[in-house]
């Protein structure tokens, strides 16, 4: 992937929450670069520290150690006023949308423009343009209480884009939405990334979100980055347990598969559009029974696993097994798991 200039650079970042009798390490040894124009994902389980990390990027949370560079500036060296100005070039959207409930869509979008001191008519004009970008021109005068979750997030995106930020930070932006709405919001983000060249940082606990829009990811577990790289590399070759559990191929097994003569087939991204199973059946003239399948398509490559049951006849089943082994996939004979 062509990598441009890093827009956000984090070096040796550490965040500790201290109170009288507790000492909680939220983040430690964090080093990462987000490059201009990319969609960077940060994935982790709840409590791993990903929300704290994104809040360190705009200094909503001050790191206890380490530095955060945004657009070449060390945020810790900025004065209060300079920091406020720097934040104006970072948009952020949230899981709970965080719209002003007493303002309609247009006035919500005008809000960041009021903060930067844009003249009212000009701000309104810009707000209408943005509402069109997010496809909600007909909801200009609607209040958040009258909008659905997806519509609220669209208004929030328009609001985040109002000041022409250099980065859009998304904190679990789709976690409160249903799958169809999630898909359409991610589509919108993708389009904004493509059309405006806007750098996007996505925080999520859902692998499907990463798969859909991210190019590079960092996996964060127990306050540290445990793996970082291109999504495809991490999918094909996850090194840590947590990465495996997110990437899933071969990682997690179906809970219950009953039966015998079971074979697990793992697609690791090489056997893209080959209809492996259909060819096996045709080739060996033997029926197989699919007991479990969990595969996905990432950038035209197949990932995932399948568990199939071979035919009763030993000759036939050996033939199927032999054929499968000649294919570009990983084949394992497995015991039934109950």
């Amino acid at each position: 992937m062509a990598q441009g200039r890093p827009i956000i650079s984090i070096r040796d970042l550490e965040k500790i929450y201290k109170s009288k009798n507790s000492h909680v390490k939220a983040l430690e040894h964090i080093n990462l670069d987000v490059y201009e124009g990319e969609v960077f994902g940060i994935i982790g389980l709840s409590g791993a520290g990903k929300s704290t990390l994104v809040r360190c990027m705009n200094f909503l949370e001050r790191p206890t150690a380490g530095t955060v560079f945004f657009d070449g500036k060390d945020l810790s060296q900025l004065t209060k006023k300079e920091l406020l100005i720097a934040r104006q070039s970072m948009g952020m959207i949230f899981q709970q949308f965080n719209l002003l409930m007493q303002r309609n869509s247009i006035d919500n979008i005008c809000f960041p423009l009021e903060i930067v001191g844009m003249e009212r008519n000009q701000a309104k004009k810009r707000a209408y343009e943005l509402l069109e970008v997010v496809g909600l021109s007909d909801k200009a005068n609607a209040y958040p209480a009258q909008l659905s979750g997806g519509q609220k997030q669209r208004v929030a995106i328009a609001r985040a884009l109002a000041t022409n930020p250099k980065v859009l930070l998304c904190d679990e932006a789709t976690s409160a939405l249903d799958p169809a709405t999630t898909h359409s919001i991610l589509g919108l983000l993708k389009q904004i990334n493509k059309d405006m060249g806007l750098t996007i940082v996505v925080i999520t606990h859902e692998m499907s979100v990463i798969e859909e829009i991210c190019q590079r990811i960092a996996i964060i577990d127990d306050s540290r980055i445990v793996e970082m790289g291109n999504v495809i590399d991490i999918f094909t070759n996850p090194k840590t347990e947590i990465a495996k559990s997110f990437a899933s191929p071969g990682g997690d097994r179906p809970d219950r598969v009953i039966g015998n003569r079971l074979v697990q087939i793992i697609f690791d991204g090489n056997s893209s559009y080959e209809p492996v199973l259909a060819k096996t059946i045709l080739e060996c003239k033997a029926p197989v029974n699919i007991m479990f399948a969990d595969t996905k398509n990432i950038d035209g490559r197949a990932f995932g696993q399948m568990i199939i049951q071979l035919p009763e006849d030993e000759n036939l089943s050996n033939r199927v097994l032999a054929y499968l082994r000649t294919q570009d996939i990983i084949v394992k004979e497995v015991e039934a798991s109950v």
Binding site: N58, L60, L83, L84, I85, A86, R87, Q88, M90, G91, M92, F94, Q96, N98, L99, L100, M101, Q102, R103, F111, P112, E114, I115, V116, T163, L169
Partner: peptide
């Protein structure tokens, strides 16, 4: 909502602006 105040801070609103543009109007 804390989140709304946080959103305003993310946009670079000063404390005074948070009070006049978020806290008071939202609590009206």
């Amino acid at each position: 909502d804390r989140g709304v105040i946080e959103a305003a801070q993310c946009m670079g609103a000063s404390m005074t602006k948070v009070i006049y543009k978020v806290m008071l109007p939202e609590a009206k």
